[in-house]
Design a protein around this nucleic acid. Structure first.
Length: 491
DNA sequence: GTTGAGCGTT
């Protein structure tokens, strides 16, 4: 058994870490001492330069000459990769908006703790990610025995995001960290996600990830399948996401348009937001562009957030509304690192609020309308617009199916009834009553039977597009898989 | 003293 020297910083005290029999060092071994570490490097004595250590599937491989007696230095994921300096942002009024929009930390539940793990252990482990405001292990009041789970809270949101994006080896067990069910209404990470319109089919998730990574850490890329000419990119830092909104970018030769994926402050209320048309008749043409006048394309600097404060319009008439009510409707997908089947998160993004149906907000301001082609800027689209082109095979029935089935199969009863009542209010196809005509003609996934087929297939489709480099059978990683969840998630 | 999906005595 050989050991290699590892330290957190070049001048820090080092720790001897045991190698495996094949000479590799397990990432988990490293994480046990340096939680959050994502890589290793060492100073090459010949060149004086730093060298990275090869990491494949959770194992570090020694340099050609063997590990030697270098001191290996931990590499941690970057966070300070913002596009604009804080100074620049300081004076802008937009900044204020953004700050308001910045999600706050919530308590996090930590599942799967070893019985022996104490609150001190818990705190100590997570402090590697940032300031820990609170850490508690739930115990039986009588015996004092741990119940195997606990709660903790970070002082800054980026720590939270980072921690949520992966599983954690704590005292020898893999633990999941999630947003507690009781706190799911916070609707956090929404603002970290941008909508990318005018995508072409040859743009891959990797292309987008690579391109947008220059602005900040990308935690997820989601491309709906089948092809729908848009994508979602989620950043670690909401400010990065915000800073890109409204811009046009060129990726692999095609001009894409970035806009807000979701308005702030719209968290699944049952009032107000469902007055827009749902029947898909809002627009014409099938060619995508904003259906009618009144559609700004991009949330300009003031667009998206103004939306939350906009006056309610009972009915926008054809092509109405849309607002910015967008979400991708997959469980945060890879976003949560594409890892955890967090139903809370699912509820959030699938949630009535976030499905982005109709909307009582007038279309965005800032009118850049008239982008042609199959492309449409989502913030300006209503469900009607969604049903426009063949390029957008998402029918309201589909949505109903998703909601209905979610209610039936996965969520509690209130979810279902809420979904249904919304469906009824909207006169949309009732997932429970296929007789009720579906006014849209979009075939959607399940053909005419979207009523029932929807959700699971839909999930399966959407899963894996974010970061499909693992070979898991199911849409979600398995708990007992020891290694190799690529960082990809989310919030 | 055993256990291993879940959701917080205040």
């Amino acid at each position: 058994m050989s050991y290699i020297l590892v330290s957190e910083d070049e001048n820090d005290e080092s720790i001897e870490l045991p190698c495996e029999e094949d000479g590799t060092l397990l990432l988990s071994t490293l994480s046990a001492q340096y939680p959050g570490a994502s890589g290793l490097k060492y100073r090459n004595p010949d060149s004086g330069a730093l060298r990275g250590v090869r990491l494949v599937e959770g194992r570090f491989y020694p340099p050609d000459a063997g590990w030697g007696n270098h001191v290996y230095i931990c590499v941690f994921p970057k966070v300070e990769n913002k596009r604009k300096s804080d100074e620049q942002l300081e004076n802008s009024t937009a900044k204020t908006k953004r700050m308001e929009n910045r999600p706050k930390c919530s308590d996090l539940i930590v599942l799967g703790l070893p019985w022996k793990t104490t609150e001190q252990d818990l705190r100590q482990y997570f402090e590697a990610y940032g300031e820990v405001l609170m850490a508690q292990v739930k115990k039986d009041p009588k015996t004092g025995q741990s119940k195997g789970f606990g709660f903790m809270r970070f002082g800054n949101y980026e720590s939270q995001v980072r921690v949520l994006s992966k599983r954690h080896m704590i005292d020898g067990r893999w633990c999941d960290v999630k947003i507690p069910n009781s706190k799911e209404s916070q609707a956090t990470e929404l603002s970290r996600k941008v909508f990318v319109g005018r995508c072409t089919e040859d743009l891959t998730a990797d292309d987008l990830r690579e391109y947008f990574s220059k602005y900040g850490e990308v935690t997820d890329v989601f491309i709906p399948k089948p092809f729908r000419a848009f994508a979602f990119v989620t950043f670690m830092d909401p400010e990065v996401a915000q800073s890109l909104c409204g811009e046009d970018h060129i990726v692999k030769g095609t001009s894409i348009h970035v806009s807000n994926a979701v308005p702030k402050n719209e968290s699944g209320g049952h009032h107000g937001r469902m007055h827009g048309r749902m029947d898909g008749r809002g627009g014409h043409g099938g060619m995508g562009g904003p259906p009618m006048g009144g559609f700004g394309s991009g949330p300009g600097p003031n667009g998206p957030f103004a939306g939350a404060q906009m006056p309610h319009h009972g009915n926008m008439g054809s092509g109405g509304g849309g607002g910015n009510m967008w979400n991708q409707g997959n469980g945060g997908g890879g976003n949560r690192g594409g890892d955890i089947p967090n139903l809370a998160a699912l509820g959030n993004s699938l949630g009535l609020g976030t499905l982005g149906i109709g909307g009582n907000h007038p279309g965005g301001q800032g009118n850049t309308g008239g982008q042609g082609g199959v492309n449409a800027a989502p913030p300006t689209l209503s469900m009607g617009a969604l049903n426009l082109g063949a390029a957008l095979p998402l029918s309201s029935a589909m949505v109903a199916a998703a909601l209905g089935q979610a209610g039936l199969g996965l969520f509690g009863g209130n979810f279902q009834s809420a979904a249904l009542s919304q469906a009824e209010n909207q006169g949309m196809a009732n997932p429970q009553n296929p007789h009720i005509p579906n006014t849209t003609s979009t075939p959607s996934l399940g053909g005419g039977n979207a009523q029932r087929s929807g959700f699971l297939e839909w999930m399966n489709q959407t899963q894996g597009s974010g970061d499909a480099n693992n070979s898991n059978q199911g849409p979600w990683p398995q708990r007992d898989v020891k290694q190799g969840f690529g960082m990809s998630v989310s919030p």
